[in-house]
């Protein structure tokens, strides 16, 4: 089992929370500030709290874009969390129109306001699994995970959808294609279900 997990630090994340969760399930987190060291890891996590525009421009200015692209196409495991998942998409309409990493044929748009819901989507919500995946093993379908986001991912390829959740509309709460996985919720803040997901990532 590979216990070393690299966490991309581009000034947009709750890096400590993620490190703490990885340690809790027996992993060894390393914070990656230097893009040249990305290739040395066999598993990395792209975290993210904040707005899309700042995140993508930080990834650019810190020269992470091409090493992340190389990592993703190498077949090694990468997990995006929250904004990290959104960055994996083609475009985002958050405060403008921006290109993402483009690993998923998907757009990031604002959650629509429907009657009887509050936005942003903050709190614990059910995650309904759409397909089987090693990361979801041992986790009960429809478990509650913690969400805190105002934008959501709209997939063009339905095969990429790993799970959905409901808040006014049914939206995509996790995506997965081969070695690349993204989750809209925060496993590092979702107690036992979340820790199981991180443990599965460690062991997958």
């Amino acid at each position: 089992m590979i216990k070393d997990i690299g966490i991309i630090d581009y000034d947009m994340g709750n890096i400590s929370s993620l490190s703490n969760a990885i340690i809790e399930v027996g992993g060894k987190p390393s914070i990656i500030n230097d893009p040249t060291s990305v290739a040395g890891f066999s598993k990395i996590i792209l975290p993210g709290v904040g707005a899309f525009k700042d995140a993508i421009s930080n990834l650019k200015s810190k020269q992470f874009i091409s090493v992340l692209n190389d990592f993703a196409s190498s077949g090694k495991q990468i997990l995006g969390i929250c904004l990290g998942m959104q960055l994996m998409c083609k475009t985002s309409s958050e405060n403008g129109y921006f290109d993402g990493l483009g690993w998923f044929d998907a757009e990031v748009n604002k959650l629509p306001k429907t009657s009887n819901i509050k936005l942003p989507h903050i709190g614990w919500n059910e995650v309904n699994f759409s397909k089987q995946n090693a990361l979801l093993e041992t986790i009960k379908d429809k478990s509650d995970f913690y969400f805190v986001h105002g934008y959501h991912v709209e997939c063009k390829n339905y095969e990429d959808i790993l799970s959905t959740s409901s808040h006014g509309i049914n939206f995509v709460s996790a995506i997965q294609n081969k070695n690349i996985t993204g989750v809209q919720f925060h496993p590092e803040k979702s107690q036992s279900a979340g820790l199981s997901l991180i443990k599965n990532f460690l062991e997958s």
Binding site: V49, G50, A51, E94, N95, P120, H121, V148, H149, G150
Partner: peptide, 8 residues
């Protein structure tokens, strides 16, 4: 709000 998102 613009840097970290309104949700935070």
């Amino acid at each position: 709000a613009s840097k970290f998102g309104t949700q935070s």
